[in-house]
């Protein structure tokens, strides 16, 4: 059986909020190392991979592999009943029909209990190859969100160009064009506000803004986001959590 107690329900609330507009139904795969999820959007353009390590729970117990097939809309409805600071306990049997969720406030004088029905989801797991990326950019997640939102007003696509000292986001559409250039800089007082670039070779790639705007719903998970780019491979957008991550992969637009 699964029994996992999360100190802050907000962690799961934010994870679900981050991915629910990209995927509707997905398996939460539970085993002794933690809870993981991998799913593609309907058009197979984007893939989300989420991991919550057992270290993020206390206690955590899962003796065998359990797949929890969950409709994320249903889970969202139930999680709305939890405060971010509530303690959340997840429980499921070995071959479960439902997932049990208990929310307790920090004063421990209120507890709410919900069961949500599970479904059988036939999901193919893709093998994600290890990639040595040409460029890795770390920037404030709020900044990335603003750039994607602003450029999406003008165009469906953005070109991301990483060079040694800066990263440029540019787009062009019917009403005109726009670009945002971020220079590498270190903010010693507020490290989360820094922009850093690790470059093996310069790279320029084009992506759909609709998906990037969607990924940015994960911004609440982390003050920074990491973008990893290589020519003609999917972009990796990673939000790190204290004991896990949410990673989005986005297939590029190729050719002209």
């Amino acid at each position: 059986m699964l029994e996992a107690r999360l100190e802050q329900a907000g962690v799961l609330k934010k994870v679900v909020e981050a991915i629910k507009d990209l995927v509707q139904d997905c398996n939460f795969d539970c085993n002794d190392s933690g809870i993981a999820l991998q799913a593609m959007d309907n058009s197979h353009v984007a893939l989300v991979s989420m991991s919550l390590s057992h270290e993020g729970f206390s206690p955590y117990r899962c003796d065998r592999n359990i797949a929890l097939g969950i409709n994320l809309n249903s889970l969202t409805k139930v999680l709305r009943a939890a405060q971010n600071e509530d303690i959340l306990t997840l429980k499921a049997a070995d071959s479960p029909d439902s997932l049990n969720l208990v929310f307790e406030n920090t004063e421990r004088d209120r507890s709410s209990e919900y069961d949500i029905k599970l479904m059988d989801i036939d999901q193919e797991h893709l093998g994600i190859p290890d990639t040595d990326y040409s460029a890795t950019v770390v920037l404030p997640s709020a900044e990335f969100q603003r750039i994607c939102r602003d450029l999406s007003q003008l165009s469906e696509s953005v070109t991301i160009e990483a060079s040694k000292s800066s990263v440029k986001f540019s787009c062009s559409g019917d009403i005109g064009n726009g670009s945002v250039n971020l220079r590498q800089h270190q903010d010693l007082e507020k490290p989360d506000q820094s922009t850093s670039i690790e470059l093996v070779e310069p790279v320029s790639l084009t992506f759909s803004l609709k998906y990037l705007v969607n990924f940015c719903k994960a911004s609440a998970l982390s003050p920074t986001v990491k973008l990893s780019l290589s020519t003609d491979v999917p972009l990796l957008v990673e939000y790190k959590m204290e004991a896990g991550y949410v990673r989005f992969y986005l297939a590029p637009k190729i050719g002209d």
Binding site: S43, V45, E124, L126, P129, S157, P234, G255, D256
Partner: peptide, 14 residues
């Protein structure tokens, strides 16, 4: 214009 690729052309199916 540019053609949108899918994830399936990069990541291996089981």
């Amino acid at each position: 214009g540019r053609k949108q690729q899918t994830i399936l052309s990069f990541f291996k199916q089981p």
